[in-house]
């Protein structure tokens, strides 16, 4: 009898445990649902629709934009048509702008990473007031709206700007960088430097002093300490800084729109122009897919670096 009772009791306890576990699971799902829904509605669905539109799936939610837009192609098979891609990739203007986009992205990212690394290394290895001031100044652009910074850059480097005026005062002809790709690079560096500096600084500061001292004790020069100890140990923050900077510059609009030339320009501006000014939304969608593919390639580097780091540290 006692055994029976205890058996029934155990079943009740087990049932209660199961029900409390499912309640916990349901709560977890409920908490995770809002951000998932938000992403799905405002990012996921538009992305799928845009990719479909670029392949000529002009029905459903794409029908209005397909009707309004000019030069749209309609799907000819179950997967669609590649005609819009052919149009874009045979357009010399697009190919030139793609080149400019890649150029601006690569050059600006290199400059941002080199500058932020120099500031962070100076702070980590030498310290002192000057290093702290530099690190502080590098973060200032974070608090200045991009539109204002863009106009400031434009007026600073324009034909009647500060640089040329300063040169003229000493009888020299200064450069005019306003509305050139150089201004776009300068603006890109300005806007991307704060985040990269914060990442690089925190990454290098997280390397324990003893790791650096052990390298010094082993006879390593400053260069060896930087290349063989500090940079590898701060690898993940530096990869994050690099990939996020590159993705940000690749898809930027404000800086090139305000400071750059009308042509050649970067794809972020082209997408807007093709969509609005030229009323060619399908080609605009194709360019967006191209930018997305490039950004995915950069994101792959970030994911791979994280994966390798987790594997090295035995986390996975």
């Amino acid at each position: 009898m006692t055994a029976l009772r205890s058996g029934a009791g155990a079943r009740v306890v087990a049932r209660r445990r199961v029900s409390s576990e499912s309640r916990r699971r349901a709560l977890g799902l409920t908490l995770a649902l809002p951000p998932v829904l938000l992403l799905a509605v405002f990012v996921g669905i538009p992305v799928v629709l845009a990719i479909g539109f670029s392949l000529g799936h002009n029905g459903g939610l794409n029908s209005t934009i397909a009707d309004i837009g000019t030069g749209t192609h309609s799907a000819t098979s179950w997967w669609g048509t590649g005609q819009a891609y052919v149009d874009v990739f045979t357009d010399p203007r697009f190919l030139r702008d793609l080149g400019v986009t890649v150029f601006v992205t690569v050059v600006s990212t290199l400059l941002v990473i080199a500058t932020s690394l120099a500031i962070a290394l100076n702070l980590r290895l030498r310290g002192g007031r000057l290093a702290t001031v530099f690190a502080g100044l590098a973060v200032v652009p974070l608090f200045i709206p991009v539109v204002i910074a863009s106009w400031a850059i434009l007026t600073f480097y324009s034909a009647d700007g500060f640089v040329r005026t300063a040169f003229a005062l000493v009888g020299l002809e200064g450069p005019t960088w306003g509305y050139t790709t150089i201004a776009v690079v300068i603006g890109s560096v300005w806007t991307s430097l704060p985040f990269a500096t914060l990442m690089a600084t925190s990454g290098l500061q997280s390397v324990p002093d003893a790791m650096i001292e052990a390298a010094k004790d082993a006879g390593a020069s400053t260069r060896s300490i930087v290349t063989r100890i500090l940079v590898p140990l701060a690898g993940i923050p530096l990869v994050i800084a690099t990939t996020f900077t590159a993705i940000g510059i690749l898809g930027q609009f404000t800086v090139p729109y305000f400071t750059g030339p009308n042509a050649p320009t970067v794809l972020g501006v082209d997408i807007s122009k093709y969509f609005q000014a030229f009323n060619r939304p399908q080609e605009s969608a194709v360019m967006a897919v191209v930018v997305f593919a490039l950004a995915s390639g950069i994101a792959f580097v970030y994911v791979r670096a994280n994966f390798r780091s987790a594997k090295k540290e035995g986390r996975i």
């Binding site: 003893a210 790791m211 001292e213 052990a214 100890i229 590898p232 140990l233 540290e313």
Partner: peptide, 12 residues
């Protein structure tokens, strides 16, 4: 040559 308290081995 020094042996540090936390060994200071380079994890990478």
């Amino acid at each position: 040559a020094m042996v540090f308290q936390n060994y200071a081995l380079w994890p990478h």
